[in-house]
Computed example of a mutant assay.
Amino acid sequence: MARKCEICGKGVVVGMKISHSHIRTKKTWAPNLQRVKAIVNGTPRRIMVCTRCLRSGKVQRAI
């Protein structure tokens, strides 16, 4: 399963972690995804959604 929001497309970001001694190592930042039951095209479906989309009301939750 891809670590990507199905509403806004937010996904994993890659960058460098830099220590105090300036040693650089690769690091990934993953979005805070939640598996929710939402209404998609009139039918309830389980989708992966980031918490930013949940809070802003872009997702209509199914009961």
Rank of each mutant, 00 (worst) to 15 (best):
V14E: 15
R61Q: 06
R45F: 01
V12M: 10
T28C: 01
K27N: 12
R55K: 11
G9E: 09
G15F: 07
S21L: 11
I18N: 04
S19D: 08
P31L: 02
R52C: 09
N32G: 03
G57P: 04
H20R: 12
R45W: 00
R24P: 09
I18V: 06
N32R: 06
A38Y: 00
A2K: 15
S21N: 14
C5R: 01
R46G: 08
T25Q: 03
T25E: 05
A2I: 07
V12F: 08
I23V: 15
Q60R: 09
R52D: 15
V12S: 09
A62K: 06
R55N: 10
G42F: 00
I39Q: 14
V13Q: 12
T51L: 08
M1T: 13
R3H: 11
V14T: 15
I63F: 13
N32K: 03
K17G: 05
G57A: 06
G11S: 14
V59H: 03
T28D: 05
K10E: 07
K26L: 12
K58H: 01
L33E: 06
P31Y: 02
T43F: 03
R52P: 05
R3G: 05
H22S: 07
C53L: 01
R35V: 13
V13S: 14
R45V: 07
R55S: 11
V14R: 15
V13D: 14
G11C: 10
T51I: 07
W29T: 13
T25K: 02
T51A: 12
M1S: 14
R55A: 11
I23L: 13
P31N: 05
R3D: 05
H20F: 12
K4E: 12
G57N: 07
V36Y: 01
H22F: 05
G57K: 04
K17W: 00
K4V: 09
W29I: 15
K58Y: 00
M16I: 13
P44G: 02
T25N: 06
K26N: 13
I7H: 02
A2S: 15
I47H: 07
I47Q: 09
K37L: 09
E6N: 11
S56F: 00
R35G: 07
K27V: 06
K17V: 00
M1W: 08
Q60V: 08
K17Y: 00
C50F: 03
C5W: 01
K58V: 03
G15I: 04
A30K: 11
N41Y: 02
C53T: 00
H20Y: 13
K37M: 10
H20E: 12
P44S: 03
R24V: 10
W29S: 15
R3W: 06
T51G: 10
E6I: 05
V13W: 03
R35W: 11
G9C: 05
I18T: 04
V40Q: 06
I23D: 14
V59N: 04
M1D: 12
T25H: 00
K37H: 09
I23W: 14
I63C: 14
L33T: 08
I18F: 00
P44H: 04
V14G: 13
V40K: 07
I7M: 02
A38P: 01
V14D: 15
M48W: 12
T51V: 11
K26R: 13
K58D: 06
A30E: 14
K10I: 08
V36H: 01
T43E: 10
L54K: 05
G9T: 06
H20K: 13
P44N: 02
E6H: 09
V40F: 03
I39V: 13
K17N: 04
K26A: 13
